[in-house]
C-alpha cells in the first residue's frame, strides 16, 4: 500500500530509518491522536493495516461516549476515494469500556474479520497490561491485526507491539488555493524489538491510490514542528509492574 520516495534533499542522510512493517498482522497496535485528528488516525489505520482486501473490518466503539467531544460516524462516500469499500465495515456499539474490550477480544479471536479496530477515548482504566496481553494472544491465534485507537490521552504502558502518533499535516495546496490530497504526520513512538522514534509525512497519491511516505529526519526539523508528545516515551512493558497512569511531563495537546 505504500511506496518509498527518496528524500528530495541534496545529500541523503547517512542512515535512513528502516521501513517499518506498518500495522502488521497478528499484532496489537496503538494509534494515538487528538480529537481533531481523528479522521487522519482512521485513514492511517485503514490504509496501513495489513489485511485481506475483501473481508470485513470491525470497528468497535462505545455508544454515546461522553469523553468523545463529538459523536463521529464513518461516512461511506468518503471511504471509496481511499480505496476502501464501506460495505466491508461492521460497526459494533458497546455499552461501556469493559464491554468494548470484551467484544474486542471476542472479535480478535475470530479469523473471519480482516482487522479489528477499537475506538477508545480518555483514560480507559480497563485497558492495562493484562488486557492488552490478552488481545495480543488472541491476535497471534487468529493472525489478524488489532488496532486500538486512543483519543485524547497520553501514552501509557501496555503490551502493544507498536505505538504510533498520528496528526494531520498541511497538505500541498492545489493551484486554486484549495486543500490538496490527504496528508498525515506519523510518528512511530515505540516498537517492540526494533528502533523507534522515526517520523514520516504521508501524502495520498491519487494516481497510484496509495499513500506515499517521506521520512522526516528528526535533526532537520525544529522542536516546534515535532509531533505532540514526541519526546515522551512510555516505559517498556516487561516484568515490571506498571505504575499508575499519572505521568510527569507534558500532556498530549488537546483541541478543546
Amino acid at each position: 500500500m505504500f511506496q518509498n520516495r527518496a528524500p528530495s534533499r541534496a545529500d541523503p542522510p547517512p542512515e535512513a530509518p528502516p521501513k517499518p512493517l506498518w500495522l502488521a498482522k497478528a499484532q496489537l497496535h496503538e494509534v494515538h491522536a487528538a480529537a481533531g485528528d481523528w479522521a487522519s488516525a482512521m485513514a492511517f489505520c485503514l490504509a496501513a493495516i495489513e489485511a485481506d482486501a475483501r473481508r470485513p473490518i470491525l470497528l468497535l466503539r462505545v455508544r454515546k461516549d461522553r469523553r468523545a467531544q463529538v459523536r463521529m460516524n464513518p461516512c461511506g462516500e468518503g471511504w471509496a476515494p481511499l480505496g476502501l469499500d464501506p460495505a466491508r465495515l461492521l460497526i459494533v456499539d458497546a455499552r461501556d469500556d469493559a464491554g468494548l474490550l470484551r467484544a474486542g477480544l471476542d472479535a480478535a479471536r475470530q479469523s473471519g474479520p480482516a482487522a479489528v479496530i477499537l475506538e477508545t477515548w480518555g483514560n480507559l482504566r480497563e485497558y492495562d497490561l493484562v488486557a492488552s496481553r490478552r488481545l495480543i494472544l488472541a491476535a497471534e491465534q487468529s493472525r489478524i491485526p488489532i488496532v486500538v485507537l486512543r483519543g485524547d490521552v497520553p501514552p501509557r504502558a501496555s503490551a502493544a507491539h507498536t505505538r504510533w502518533t498520528v496528526s494531520s499535516a498541511p497538505s500541498t495546496p492545489l493551484e486554486t488555493r484549495a486543500p490538496g490530497p490527504p496528508a498525515l504526520l506519523v510518528e512511530l513512538q515505540r516498537r517492540r524489538g526494533g528502533p523507534a522514534g522515526m517520523q514520516w509525512r504521508l501524502e495520498w497519491n491519487e494516481d497510484n491510490a496509495c499513500f506515499r511516505e517521506e521520512p522526516i529526519v528528526p535533526a532537520s526539523i525544529g522542536p516546534a514542528s515535532a509531533g505532540p508528545g514526541a519526546d515522551e516515551a512510555a516505559p517498556l512493558s516487561g516484568a515490571v509492574v506498571s505504575l499508575a497512569a499519572v505521568r510527569a511531563g507534558e500532556p498530549l495537546r488537546r483541541t478543546a
Binding site: L90, V92, A103, Q110
Partner: peptide
C-alpha cells in the same frame, strides 16, 4: 467459508449480548 461462518457467528454473539441494533452496517 470458515471466515464467513466465523463473521456470522460473531455478529450473532455480539447481537445477543449487546442488542441486535448495536451491530450494524453502513448502507447507502
Amino acid at each position: 467459508e470458515d471466515a464467513e461462518d466465523s463473521i456470522a457467528a460473531l455478529v450473532d454473539t455480539l447481537g445477543v449480548r449487546l442488542g441486535e441494533e448495536r451491530v450494524s452496517r453502513l448502507v447507502p
